[in-house]
């Protein structure tokens, strides 16, 4: 790929795989250990805005895909071709014993995002300051956003089992 940022990334880090991303974005696939160094590199390169951390459950492949979407704040009235693009950073994590390094040291906003992924997917983030529950009140055996969690079955097992109140009795 003839992308200046891609070339520099390729030269700096080992095991970085570049893909032509969606609609003009650079997609970078890195090994799990390289998440934090690559994020730091990108931040110093001007990508100072972590838009979201997402997680996709590819159950057939037996792995989670963590997606970091980086962009930058700008005051220029330019479109996407204004010299810089957004970057999609991806790393895969095995479904068993899922864990990944935390990005909170690089981006402060990573904290709630990682907390949410920890809660909904059960991925442990090493070094995260507070991996306490964020949204959920009940305990779920399988974290609910995993593909093998069946919401309909769960509703039938839990909420539908609560008996209606017998007013006459």
């Amino acid at each position: 790929m003839t992308n200046p940022l891609g070339t520099r990334l390729d030269a700096t880090f080992k095991g970085v795989e570049l893909r032509s991303g969606v609609d003009g974005r650079l997609a970078v696939v890195v090994p799990r250990e390289a998440i934090v160094p690559v994020l730091t590199f990108l931040k110093e390169d001007g990508y100072d805005y972590l838009q979201l951390i997402s997680c996709v459950d590819w159950i057939d492949r037996g792995e989670f895909e963590l997606v970091y979407l980086l962009s930058f704040y700008t005051e220029d009235e330019v479109g996407r071709d204004g010299g810089k693009q957004e970057v999609l950073l991806k790393a895969t994590v095995p479904r068993e014993q899922a864990s990944a390094p935390t990005a909170t040291g690089v981006f402060a906003i990573a904290e709630p995002h990682e907390r949410e992924i920890h809660e909904l997917y059960g991925i442990h983030f090493e070094g995260h300051p507070r991996l306490t529950p964020l949204f959920l009140d009940r305990d779920y055996e399988i974290p609910p956003f995993r593909k093998d969690f069946d919401t309909k079955q769960y509703v039938a097992d839990v909420f539908d089992r609560v008996p209606p109140i017998d007013e006459e009795g």
Binding site: L136, P144, F149, T151, V162, P164
Partner: peptide, 14 residues
Amino acid sequence: YWDSYNTINQLDKY
């Protein structure tokens, strides 16, 4: 939200 894992379905049970 009838199939949501986090919303109770019938309020008059509670």
